[in-house]
Design a protein around this nucleic acid. Structure first.
Lengths: 238, 238
DNA sequence: TCAATGTCTTGACATTTATCAAGGCGCACA
DNA sequence: TGTGCGCCTTGATAAATGTCAAGACATTGA
């Protein structure tokens, strides 16, 4: 494992207060895997063997019920996922697969639990991380229950607009089918939602989106800090 | 505060490993409030002043966006809520109000944070509690995204069926308007979903429900342990 | 006792969302 | 250079869900 990657991980809120020797020990037990796109990393229902950290590439968390499937979120670097399952030594509630070629750090679950048991500072960092994740899911659920699908799309675009530098142009990081599922609608519906937003100054060219006015988008979305503001760089996580 | 109530709280997973003296200190700083029904305890957006614990009665957590409102969950004793906001010293993401007359223990947020900073066992109990809550919300989100409204109702009834002793009879603990909102539908829709379930042996008499067969309900709901099983007695919490 | 109120249900209808089918487009690959 | 394939869009239609209005019923309080 490259020292550069080690530094990236060390800088994560989860690890930065950890005892140095223990951090090294944890990473020694871990391994950095390279995966091609569309590889399933985790199946829901399986026991949690590893804490995963996306170092590079994009990873989708999704869930299934009978034949159905729904994208819960898409993670970009650097994000941990399935922390809660690892801590509880429980089965995964979501599945995960790569969307692009990706590098994923996998830390044995037992090592994480042991580190938490021994390192008080690490235990407190975990509290902070979990609290963040928890609040992320709550925001997500509010988004789902309080907004229509067009509003969710507008809110998503407004979020990406800011995240990608507020230039008025943004690129969808994920394909539209996955985006649709993440926003809780069908691909056909997403297409139609985009057309609805055209009259609000949203132009679509494949994955390239032009936005006339952030405020207009936010008005449509009924922008609300208690749903849309992401306090840290932390994205949605399991 | 009655010693009996103290014992109840002490037995919660969150507090049972805590240093005894610190537990007493925490409770001394706290106060047990009695509220009539329909009293707003918390408004979303306000800074988190207290960790709340429902000792008696029912408390609804809900969220709003512009004029809209949605019930996130309804808590019964003994449940903590808004733990994450307290730990992060952040604003509440949800509002709370009593549904019945209720007794609520309120522990000053700063006391909780101080206790976590000083008591390592308490910090680890918090990790466990947050991980539980987190997984609860994830299950909830899967429920919302993967099931139709009739299926969500069937799943709710199946859950209550078991929870209330699997006698074939159960009583709705909350009014139907709130239940509808919690399940993500309108009251009218809930009524119609109940009629749909009639052909599956569900009889409704006001809040009294008779269920012919749990399996039948579960089949309709597409029962799945990874959504519906509640590992501990812990109910949904913030 | 009766009016007033709130809850729940039902019907008619509108809107939203999903499904099915077809076709355009770009891209990989033979 | 096709040719197939996957992705996306569009149209037609169906299903699910929401809205509005009315009425039944129980509860409360004057």
């Amino acid at each position: 494992m490259r020292d550069e990657d080690k530094q990236i991980i060390r800088r994560l809120g989860l690890f930065q207060d950890m005892d140095a020797a223990r951090f090294d020990g944890l990473l020694n037990a871990a391994f950095l895997q390279r995966f091609p796109e569309r590889v399933v990393l985790i199946n829901e229902g399986e026991p949690s063997d590893f804490l995963h950290i996306v170092i590079d590439g994009m990873v989708e968390l999704y869930a299934t019920l009978d034949g159905r499937e729904s994208t819960m979120t898409v993670l970009s670097p650097v994000s941990t996922f399935i922390l809660a399952a690892v801590l509880k030594d429980a089965v995964y509630l979501m599945s995960a697969r790569t969307r692009t070629a990706a590098r994923v750090l996998m830390i044995p679950a037992k090592s994480v639990r042991d580190a938490m048991a021994e390192d008080d500072a690490f235990a407190r960092s975990i509290v902070d991380e979990l609290a963040n994740c928890y609040r992320g899911v709550v925001r997500n659920q509010k988004n789902l229950k309080l907004r229509t699908s067009v509003e969710r799309l507008a809110s998503y675009l407004a979020h990406q607009y800011v995240r990608q530098g507020a230039t008025g142009e943004l690129t969808l990081q994920i394909d539209k089918k996955t985006l649709a599922s993440m926003l809780g609608m069908t691909p056909e519906n997403l297409s139609r939602s985009f057309s609805t937003l055209r009259r609000a100054g949203v132009e679509v060219n494949g994955p390239e989106i032009t936005v006339r006015s952030l405020d207009e988008l936010r008005e449509i979305a009924h922008h609300a800090p208690l749903i849309d503001n992401f306090p840290n760089t932390v994205e949605h996580q399991q």
